[in-house]
């Protein structure tokens, strides 16, 4: 019996170790899980067991036409630090009726490539909130073009010729990002001690932003659920 318990404890501790990053002397890390979920009022109604079309055994029953939060892709976890320099390459691929990504988180200074896999020449642009805009040179089918992003904020990549080709971009100075599906893990490791901001973003919902302090030899675990009510509540945080 004792042997079984010891083995069990060993296995549990091994699982815990594997989910946390290794501690690196002089460095820190932040890690966790990012997921999305329905509004708390919808969940509460489903949990009451109402026979409404949204309830199934006390849980939200995602039927056709509904946003299935548990299967959302393109959840972004972004880490901000002014010392990060832009310059990372990103690639978006344009088809005949949609882009490869509906959303993308990037840094000011990053290079944004667009590959034209559609059947016509396309002129892409990156538009900011006001009158700011960057325009690509015309891209023939099978070719690609690039710009260096010089704007922050909520941006939109589109094309002159085809309005269906749209990608929403979240751009900040000093941003590095990881794209995850709902329920997946993220990890930023080997970070120098200091103050950072971490942002969890989904293009249709918005974002939650948190300040974190990374200390040498310390790993921070931070799980985050993105839902309308949680995002709204975070806007009211002091």
């Amino acid at each position: 019996m004792i042997k079984i318990l010891t083995t069990l404890l060993f296995l549990i501790s091994l699982t815990a170790c594997s989910s946390a990053p290794e501690i690196v002397p002089g460095k820190g890390a932040i890690y966790g899980t990012v997921s999305a979920d329905s509004h708390k009022d919808i969940i509460a109604k489903a949990s009451k067991g109402d026979d409404g079309i949204y309830a199934n055994e006390g849980k939200v029953n995602f039927v056709k036409g509904m946003v299935n939060y548990h299967q959302l892709r393109e959840l972004y976890v972004c880490l901000l630090n002014p010392s990060f320099k832009g310059g990372k390459d990103h690639l978006l691929i344009a088809g005949n009726d949609k882009m490869s990504h509906r959303s993308l988180a990037i840094a000011v200074g990053d290079k944004l490539w667009v590959q034209n896999n559609s059947s016509r020449t396309l002129t892409f642009f990156l538009a900011g909130q006001d009158d700011s805009i960057q325009v690509y040179s015309a891209v023939k089918p099978g070719e690609r073009s690039v710009i260096t992003v010089d704007q922050g904020g909520s941006l939109e990549l589109g094309s002159d010729e085809n309005e269906a080709l749209i990608t929403t971009l979240f751009s900040r100075r000093g941003l590095i990002s990881q794209m995850r599906s709902s329920g997946e893990k993220y990890l930023f490791e080997n970070l120098n001690p200091g103050q950072y901001e971490i942002i969890f973003w989904f293009w249709r919902l918005g974002f939650i932003e948190k300040n974190i302090i990374i200390k040498a030899g310390e790993n921070i675990k931070l799980n985050q659920v993105l839902s309308v009510d949680k995002i709204m509540a975070s806007k009211n945080d002091p």
């Binding site: 509004h39 109604k45 409404g52 949204y54 009510d229 709204m232």
Partner: peptide, 14 residues
Amino acid sequence: DHNIYSLSRLKNFD
């Protein structure tokens, strides 16, 4: 059921 919200610069509401 619906849950209407906006997180725009015009108006934040849930």
